[in-house]
Design a protein around this nucleic acid. Sequence first.
DNA 1: AAGTAGTTTAGAACAATTCTAAAATCTGCA
DNA 2: TGCAGATTTTAGAATTGTTCTAAACTACTT
Lengths: 135, 135
Amino acid sequence: MPGTSPDYAARLREAGLRPTRQRVALARLLFEGGHRHVTAEGLHADVRATRLPVSLATVYNALNQFRDAGLLREVVVAPGRSYFDTNTGHHHHFFVEPDGELHDFASDKVTIAGLPAPPKGTRLARVDVIVRVRR
Amino acid sequence: MPGTSPDYAARLREAGLRPTRQRVALARLLFEGGHRHVTAEGLHADVRATRLPVSLATVYNALNQFRDAGLLREVVVAPGRSYFDTNTGHHHHFFVEPDGELHDFASDKVTIAGLPAPPKGTRLARVDVIVRVRR
DNA sequence: AAGTAGTTTAGAACAATTCTAAAATCTGCA
DNA sequence: TGCAGATTTTAGAATTGTTCTAAACTACTT
Ligand SMILES: [Mn+2]
Ligand SMILES: [Mn+2]
Ligand SMILES: [Zn+2]
Ligand SMILES: [Zn+2]
Protein backbone atom coordinates (compact mmCIF):
# COMPACT_ATOMS: atom_id res chain seq x y z
CA MET A 1 0.00 0.00 0.00
CA PRO A 2 2.35 2.76 -1.19
CA GLY A 3 1.55 6.30 -0.17
CA THR A 4 -0.44 5.17 2.84
CA SER A 5 2.29 5.47 5.43
CA PRO A 6 1.52 8.63 7.35
CA ASP A 7 4.06 11.39 7.31
CA TYR A 8 4.11 12.54 10.89
CA ALA A 9 6.68 15.27 10.24
CA ALA A 10 4.33 16.88 7.73
CA ARG A 11 1.39 16.48 10.06
CA LEU A 12 3.27 18.24 12.83
CA ARG A 13 4.39 21.03 10.51
CA GLU A 14 0.78 21.59 9.45
CA ALA A 15 -0.06 21.95 13.11
CA GLY A 16 2.62 24.59 13.49
CA LEU A 17 5.02 22.37 15.38
CA ARG A 18 8.59 21.59 14.42
CA PRO A 19 8.93 17.91 13.68
CA THR A 20 11.62 17.08 16.18
CA ARG A 21 12.79 13.53 16.81
CA GLN A 22 10.86 13.43 20.05
CA ARG A 23 7.63 14.84 18.69
CA VAL A 24 7.69 12.55 15.67
CA ALA A 25 8.25 9.52 17.89
CA LEU A 26 5.38 10.55 20.15
CA ALA A 27 3.11 11.26 17.18
CA ARG A 28 3.85 7.84 15.76
CA LEU A 29 2.98 6.15 19.02
CA LEU A 30 -0.18 8.20 19.38
CA PHE A 31 -1.54 8.16 15.84
CA GLU A 32 -0.48 4.91 14.24
CA GLY A 33 -2.94 2.16 14.99
CA GLY A 34 -6.34 2.85 16.53
CA HIS A 35 -7.41 5.57 18.88
CA ARG A 36 -5.70 5.74 22.25
CA HIS A 37 -6.32 7.20 25.67
CA VAL A 38 -2.96 7.88 27.27
CA THR A 39 -1.58 9.41 30.39
CA ALA A 40 1.72 11.29 30.36
CA GLU A 41 3.36 8.57 32.43
CA GLY A 42 2.02 5.84 30.16
CA LEU A 43 3.15 7.50 26.97
CA HIS A 44 6.54 8.20 28.53
CA ALA A 45 6.94 4.50 29.27
CA ASP A 46 5.93 3.67 25.68
CA VAL A 47 8.36 6.07 24.06
CA ARG A 48 11.24 5.02 26.26
CA ALA A 49 10.56 1.43 25.25
CA THR A 50 11.50 2.47 21.70
CA ARG A 51 14.99 3.25 23.04
CA LEU A 52 14.71 6.91 22.13
CA PRO A 53 15.50 8.89 25.25
CA VAL A 54 12.71 11.40 25.86
CA SER A 55 12.23 13.22 29.12
CA LEU A 56 8.94 13.28 30.97
CA ALA A 57 8.90 17.07 30.67
CA THR A 58 8.98 16.71 26.89
CA VAL A 59 6.09 14.28 26.98
CA TYR A 60 4.06 16.80 28.99
CA ASN A 61 5.10 19.61 26.66
CA ALA A 62 4.15 17.60 23.59
CA LEU A 63 0.81 16.44 24.97
CA ASN A 64 -0.15 20.00 25.86
CA GLN A 65 1.02 21.31 22.48
CA PHE A 66 -0.78 18.55 20.58
CA ARG A 67 -3.92 19.32 22.53
CA ASP A 68 -3.62 23.04 21.88
CA ALA A 69 -3.11 22.29 18.19
CA GLY A 70 -6.27 20.17 18.10
CA LEU A 71 -4.45 16.88 17.54
CA LEU A 72 -5.54 15.57 20.94
CA ARG A 73 -8.33 16.13 23.36
CA GLU A 74 -7.97 16.12 27.14
CA VAL A 75 -10.45 14.02 29.07
CA VAL A 76 -11.08 14.52 32.77
CA VAL A 77 -12.55 11.50 34.49
CA ALA A 78 -10.62 10.87 37.67
CA PRO A 79 -9.10 13.17 40.22
CA GLY A 80 -5.38 13.73 39.92
CA ARG A 81 -4.70 12.29 36.49
CA SER A 82 -5.18 13.61 32.96
CA TYR A 83 -6.00 11.42 30.00
CA PHE A 84 -5.24 12.51 26.46
CA ASP A 85 -7.44 11.18 23.70
CA THR A 86 -6.35 10.70 20.10
CA ASN A 87 -9.98 10.65 19.07
CA THR A 88 -10.80 14.31 18.61
CA GLY A 89 -14.23 13.77 17.10
CA HIS A 90 -17.50 14.00 18.99
CA HIS A 91 -17.80 10.98 21.21
CA HIS A 92 -18.32 9.92 24.79
CA HIS A 93 -16.72 7.54 27.27
CA PHE A 94 -17.16 4.54 29.42
CA PHE A 95 -14.88 4.78 32.41
CA VAL A 96 -14.13 1.46 34.04
CA GLU A 97 -13.39 1.68 37.74
CA PRO A 98 -11.25 0.80 39.46
CA ASP A 99 -9.00 -0.01 36.48
CA GLY A 100 -9.07 3.51 35.08
CA GLU A 101 -9.71 2.30 31.51
CA LEU A 102 -11.52 4.50 29.01
CA HIS A 103 -13.63 3.23 26.10
CA ASP A 104 -15.17 5.35 23.39
CA PHE A 105 -18.68 5.29 22.15
CA ALA A 106 -20.00 7.31 19.24
CA SER A 107 -22.01 10.33 20.27
CA ASP A 108 -24.61 9.68 17.56
CA LYS A 109 -25.55 6.49 19.41
CA VAL A 110 -26.96 8.61 22.20
CA THR A 111 -29.72 11.14 22.12
CA ILE A 112 -29.50 13.89 24.66
CA ALA A 113 -32.71 15.86 24.67
CA GLY A 114 -33.92 18.69 26.83
CA LEU A 115 -30.63 20.16 27.98
CA PRO A 116 -31.34 23.37 29.89
CA ALA A 117 -30.10 26.63 28.41
CA PRO A 118 -26.57 27.61 29.48
CA PRO A 119 -26.34 30.03 32.42
CA LYS A 120 -26.63 33.75 31.60
CA GLY A 121 -23.61 35.11 29.86
CA THR A 122 -22.20 31.75 28.81
CA ARG A 123 -22.08 29.79 25.57
CA LEU A 124 -22.12 26.07 25.17
CA ALA A 125 -18.66 24.66 24.54
CA ARG A 126 -19.07 20.90 24.77
CA VAL A 127 -21.16 18.20 26.36
CA ASP A 128 -19.28 15.35 27.98
CA VAL A 129 -21.02 12.15 28.93
CA ILE A 130 -19.10 9.82 31.19
CA VAL A 131 -20.69 6.46 31.82
CA ARG A 132 -19.07 5.10 34.95
CA VAL A 133 -19.10 1.32 35.19
CA ARG A 134 -17.63 -1.14 37.68
CA ARG A 135 -16.23 -4.64 37.32
CA MET B 1 -39.91 27.09 63.62
CA PRO B 2 -39.09 24.88 66.59
CA GLY B 3 -37.72 21.41 65.90
CA THR B 4 -36.53 22.39 62.45
CA SER B 5 -32.94 23.15 63.33
CA PRO B 6 -30.90 20.23 62.07
CA ASP B 7 -28.93 18.21 64.56
CA TYR B 8 -25.64 17.69 62.81
CA ALA B 9 -24.18 15.60 65.62
CA ALA B 10 -27.01 13.09 65.21
CA ARG B 11 -26.65 13.11 61.47
CA LEU B 12 -22.97 12.33 61.75
CA ARG B 13 -23.60 9.58 64.28
CA GLU B 14 -26.10 7.99 61.93
CA ALA B 15 -23.41 8.01 59.27
CA GLY B 16 -21.09 6.20 61.64
CA LEU B 17 -18.89 9.21 62.33
CA ARG B 18 -18.11 10.67 65.73
CA PRO B 19 -19.52 14.15 65.97
CA THR B 20 -16.33 16.00 66.73
CA ARG B 21 -16.17 19.79 66.93
CA GLN B 22 -14.47 19.92 63.55
CA ARG B 23 -16.83 17.56 61.77
CA VAL B 24 -19.90 19.28 63.17
CA ALA B 25 -18.61 22.68 62.08
CA LEU B 26 -17.89 21.36 58.60
CA ALA B 27 -21.27 19.64 58.37
CA ARG B 28 -23.00 22.87 59.34
CA LEU B 29 -21.17 24.79 56.64
CA LEU B 30 -21.90 22.13 54.07
CA PHE B 31 -25.49 21.27 54.84
CA GLU B 32 -27.16 24.38 56.17
CA GLY B 33 -28.47 26.54 53.38
CA GLY B 34 -28.70 25.30 49.79
CA HIS B 35 -26.55 22.83 47.96
CA ARG B 36 -22.88 23.60 47.60
CA HIS B 37 -19.95 22.58 45.43
CA VAL B 38 -16.80 23.01 47.47
CA THR B 39 -13.11 22.37 47.15
CA ALA B 40 -11.03 21.37 50.15
CA GLU B 41 -9.23 24.71 50.09
CA GLY B 42 -12.48 26.63 49.83
CA LEU B 43 -14.13 24.81 52.69
CA HIS B 44 -11.01 25.21 54.76
CA ALA B 45 -11.15 28.96 54.24
CA ASP B 46 -14.84 28.95 55.22
CA VAL B 47 -14.35 26.99 58.40
CA ARG B 48 -11.39 29.05 59.49
CA ALA B 49 -13.50 32.16 59.03
CA THR B 50 -15.71 30.83 61.86
CA ARG B 51 -12.67 31.16 64.14
CA LEU B 52 -12.59 27.43 64.87
CA PRO B 53 -9.10 26.22 64.09
CA VAL B 54 -9.30 23.24 61.75
CA SER B 55 -6.35 21.91 59.84
CA LEU B 56 -6.45 21.34 56.11
CA ALA B 57 -5.71 17.65 56.69
CA THR B 58 -8.88 17.41 58.74
CA VAL B 59 -10.88 19.03 55.97
CA TYR B 60 -9.56 16.46 53.53
CA ASN B 61 -10.26 13.65 56.00
CA ALA B 62 -13.79 14.86 56.60
CA LEU B 63 -14.61 15.37 52.92
CA ASN B 64 -13.42 11.86 52.09
CA GLN B 65 -15.30 10.37 55.03
CA PHE B 66 -18.48 12.27 54.22
CA ARG B 67 -18.22 11.08 50.64
CA ASP B 68 -17.64 7.47 51.71
CA ALA B 69 -20.65 7.76 54.03
CA GLY B 70 -22.84 8.98 51.17
CA LEU B 71 -23.25 12.48 52.58
CA LEU B 72 -21.32 14.01 49.68
CA ARG B 73 -20.55 13.19 46.11
CA GLU B 74 -17.24 13.87 44.41
CA VAL B 75 -17.38 15.58 41.02
CA VAL B 76 -14.48 15.53 38.62
CA VAL B 77 -14.58 18.30 36.05
CA ALA B 78 -11.14 19.83 35.85
CA PRO B 79 -7.68 18.36 36.03
CA GLY B 80 -5.99 18.68 39.38
CA ARG B 81 -8.86 19.73 41.59
CA SER B 82 -11.69 17.84 43.27
CA TYR B 83 -15.11 19.29 43.91
CA PHE B 84 -17.40 17.88 46.59
CA ASP B 85 -21.10 18.20 46.04
CA THR B 86 -23.68 18.36 48.82
CA ASN B 87 -26.34 17.37 46.33
CA THR B 88 -26.18 13.58 46.36
CA GLY B 89 -29.27 13.04 44.25
CA HIS B 90 -29.27 12.34 40.53
CA HIS B 91 -28.36 15.49 38.70
CA HIS B 92 -25.90 16.91 36.23
CA HIS B 93 -23.64 19.94 35.91
CA PHE B 94 -22.83 23.03 34.00
CA PHE B 95 -19.16 23.80 34.33
CA VAL B 96 -18.29 27.41 33.63
CA GLU B 97 -14.81 27.93 32.30
CA PRO B 98 -12.54 29.57 33.05
CA ASP B 99 -14.13 30.47 36.41
CA GLY B 100 -14.44 26.89 37.59
CA GLU B 101 -18.03 27.34 38.78
CA LEU B 102 -20.42 24.41 38.92
CA HIS B 103 -24.20 24.67 38.53
CA ASP B 104 -26.67 21.86 38.98
CA PHE B 105 -29.44 20.87 36.71
CA ALA B 106 -31.99 18.18 37.42
CA SER B 107 -31.38 14.93 35.60
CA ASP B 108 -35.06 14.52 34.79
CA LYS B 109 -34.81 17.62 32.60
CA VAL B 110 -32.63 15.65 30.22
CA THR B 111 -33.42 12.52 28.29
CA ILE B 112 -30.49 10.30 27.52
CA ALA B 113 -31.58 7.61 25.11
CA GLY B 114 -29.65 4.88 23.36
CA LEU B 115 -26.72 4.47 25.72
CA PRO B 116 -24.66 1.49 24.57
CA ALA B 117 -24.48 -1.51 26.86
CA PRO B 118 -21.62 -1.43 29.37
CA PRO B 119 -18.43 -3.27 28.34
CA LYS B 120 -18.30 -7.02 29.07
CA GLY B 121 -17.96 -7.79 32.73
CA THR B 122 -18.98 -4.36 33.96
CA ARG B 123 -22.11 -2.93 35.51
CA LEU B 124 -23.39 0.59 35.13
CA ALA B 125 -22.58 2.72 38.16
CA ARG B 126 -23.53 6.25 37.15
CA VAL B 127 -23.92 8.53 34.17
CA ASP B 128 -22.35 11.94 34.48
CA VAL B 129 -23.21 14.70 32.07
CA ILE B 130 -20.96 17.74 32.15
CA VAL B 131 -22.06 20.65 30.03
CA ARG B 132 -19.02 22.82 29.52
CA VAL B 133 -19.80 26.44 28.85
CA ARG B 134 -17.64 29.52 28.41
CA ARG B 135 -18.13 33.18 29.26
C1' DA C 1 28.34 26.89 7.33
C1' DA C 2 26.52 30.23 10.53
C1' DG C 3 22.98 32.50 12.91
C1' DT C 4 18.78 32.34 15.29
C1' DA C 5 14.73 30.84 17.09
C1' DG C 6 12.58 26.93 18.88
C1' DT C 7 13.15 22.57 21.62
C1' DT C 8 14.81 19.36 25.00
C1' DT C 9 16.38 18.28 29.39
C1' DA C 10 17.73 17.63 34.37
C1' DG C 11 16.47 19.15 38.17
C1' DA C 12 14.05 22.36 41.01
C1' DA C 13 9.60 24.04 42.08
C1' DC C 14 4.76 23.75 42.75
C1' DA C 15 -0.03 22.40 43.89
C1' DA C 16 -3.18 19.06 45.48
C1' DT C 17 -3.52 15.41 48.40
C1' DT C 18 -2.09 11.80 51.67
C1' DC C 19 0.68 10.00 55.37
C1' DT C 20 2.95 9.77 60.05
C1' DA C 21 3.01 9.61 64.66
C1' DA C 22 2.26 12.33 68.69
C1' DA C 23 -1.19 15.12 71.22
C1' DA C 24 -5.99 15.94 71.95
C1' DT C 25 -10.72 14.49 72.25
C1' DC C 26 -14.69 11.58 72.39
C1' DT C 27 -17.38 7.71 74.44
C1' DG C 28 -18.79 4.06 77.31
C1' DC C 29 -18.46 2.45 81.67
C1' DA C 30 -17.08 2.45 86.43
C1' DT D 1 -17.43 12.41 87.46
C1' DG D 2 -13.36 10.04 86.30
C1' DC D 3 -10.89 6.78 83.49
C1' DA D 4 -9.43 3.85 79.93
C1' DG D 5 -9.42 2.79 75.35
C1' DA D 6 -10.47 3.92 70.77
C1' DT D 7 -10.82 7.52 67.51
C1' DT D 8 -9.63 11.94 65.76
C1' DT D 9 -6.85 15.95 65.00
C1' DT D 10 -2.78 18.06 63.78
C1' DA D 11 1.86 19.83 62.20
C1' DG D 12 4.80 18.73 59.32
C1' DA D 13 6.84 15.53 56.12
C1' DA D 14 6.02 12.87 52.09
C1' DT D 15 4.02 11.67 47.62
C1' DT D 16 2.06 12.44 43.15
C1' DG D 17 1.10 14.76 39.04
C1' DT D 18 2.50 18.65 36.60
C1' DT D 19 4.99 22.94 35.41
C1' DC D 20 9.02 25.90 35.47
C1' DT D 21 13.99 27.30 34.79
C1' DA D 22 17.87 28.01 32.36
C1' DA D 23 21.49 25.77 29.99
C1' DA D 24 22.57 22.58 26.12
C1' DC D 25 20.98 21.09 21.78
C1' DT D 26 18.60 21.02 17.17
C1' DA D 27 15.87 22.52 13.27
C1' DC D 28 15.16 25.84 9.92
C1' DT D 29 16.71 29.98 7.20
C1' DT D 30 20.03 32.34 4.68
MN1 LIG E 1 -2.64 20.70 31.33
MN1 LIG F 1 -9.87 11.38 47.14
ZN1 LIG G 1 -12.11 8.87 23.63
ZN1 LIG H 1 -24.07 19.25 41.88
